[in-house]
C-alpha cells in the first residue's frame, strides 16, 4: 500500500517545461536593414550577440549561421522580431539594444566598453582604446579584438583609427569605415589636412584644454585660439589640461 503511495507521489513530480526553456537554448536570428546595408543579427534573451553584414557572408544566411555556430556553438532559429532598440541603433546613431557579450575575456570586454563610449562623428586612436582598457601597451591586441568585434555598428569599432591619423582597417573593408564616418558628419578631409601637417591634438588657448581634433569641444575652438600639437605631452608641458570628455591623456 505504502509502495504505491511513493510511486504515485513520485510520478506527480513530473511537470511541463516552462516556455522560457527554448528561448534559453536557441539564439534567434533575423535579417534587417542597417547603415551597412542588409545585416544578419543573432540575439539571445540577454541581448544582441552577433552582427555581420550580408555582403560579408555573400548574402548567404547559411554562411552567417555557420560563422555564428563556429564561434558560439549554439543552435539558431529564425526570429520574427529583434530586441527593443535594435532597428534604430542599426540604421541611426543613437540608442542601442542590450548586448550579450558573455564568453569574452576581460580584456575583450574592456576594449569593447571603451570603444562603445566613442561618440558618433568622432574617432579615437587604437592606442587610446588600449589605455582606456587598462593596457596601454596592448595596441596591436586592441586591433585584433576589434577585428573580431561580435557586434559592429552597435559597438562602433569603425570609430577607432590609427595613431598616425590614417583611418586603418575595418572588418567589412576600409571603404565602409570611411562611408560610415562621413555619414556621421565627420569631416574626413579636414581631419586628413590636420594629419598631413602632423597635427593629432588641438588646444584652446582660452580654456587651456587640449582635445582630439574630432572631439566636439575641439570643433568649437575658433581659428584665432586653436593651437595644434603633434604630441599631447607637448601640450601638457605647456600647461594644457586634457579634455575630460575625449581624454587625450589621463587627467593629472
Amino acid at each position: 500500500m505504502t509502495g504505491t503511495t511513493i510511486e504515485q507521489a513520485l510520478a506527480g513530480l513530473a511537470g511541463e517545461a516552462p516556455d522560457g526553456l527554448e528561448d534559453k537554448v536557441f539564439t534567434g536570428w533575423l535579417s534587417t536593414p542597417s547603415r551597412l546595408g542588409e545585416v544578419f543579427v543573432a540575439f539571445t534573451t540577454d541581448g544582441v550577440q552577433f552582427v555581420r553584414s550580408a555582403e560579408s557572408v555573400g548574402s548567404d544566411p547559411d554562411a552567417f549561421a555557420q560563422a555564428y555556430r563556429d564561434r558560439f556553438g549554439r543552435p539558431l532559429r529564425p526570429a520574427g522580431r529583434g530586441p527593443a532598440g535594435l532597428a534604430p541603433a542599426l540604421t541611426g546613431r543613437t540608442g542601442g539594444p542590450r548586448l550579450d557579450l558573455r564568453g569574452l575575456s576581460d580584456f575583450e570586454h574592456d576594449v569593447l566598453d571603451a570603444t562603445r563610449r566613442i561618440p558618433s562623428g568622432q574617432v579615437r586612436p587604437y592606442s587610446w582604446v588600449a589605455r582606456e582598457a587598462g593596457r596601454a601597451k596592448a595596441v596591436r591586441a586592441v586591433g585584433s579584438v576589434l577585428a573580431r568585434n561580435p557586434v559592429p555598428l552597435l559597438i562602433p569599432c569603425h570609430r577607432v583609427v590609427r595613431s598616425d591619423g590614417a583611418l586603418g582597417e575595418y572588418m567589412f573593408g576600409p571603404e565602409h569605415k570611411q562611408a560610415l564616418l562621413r555619414e556621421e558628419d565627420l569631416d574626413l578631409d579636414r581631419l586628413a589636412g590636420l594629419t598631413d601637417r602632423g597635427v593629432h591634438y588641438l588646444g584652446s588657448d582660452t580654456t587651456g584644454v587640449v582635445c582630439f581634433p574630432t572631439c566636439h569641444h575641439a570643433r568649437r575652438i575658433t581659428d584665432a585660439h586653436r593651437r595644434p600639437f603633434a604630441r599631447v605631452e607637448k601640450a601638457l608641458a605647456e600647461g594644457y589640461r586634457p579634455c575630460r570628455d575625449c581624454r587625450p591623456a589621463v587627467p593629472a
Binding site: 513530480l13 513530473a14 511537470g15 511541463e16 517545461a17 516552462p18 526553456l21 527554448e22 537554448v25 536557441f26 549561421a65 555556430r69 543552435p75 539558431l76 532559429r77
Partner: peptide, 22 residues
C-alpha cells in the same frame, strides 16, 4: 542539425526539465 535539434528539444523538453527539477 539546427532544425533537427529544435525537434529534439520539443520532443524531450518535458522529460529533461522534470529530471532537472529534481
Amino acid at each position: 542539425l539546427d532544425g533537427g535539434f529544435a525537434a529534439l528539444v520539443r520532443e524531450h523538453r518535458g522529460v529533461v526539465y522534470s529530471v532537472a527539477r529534481q
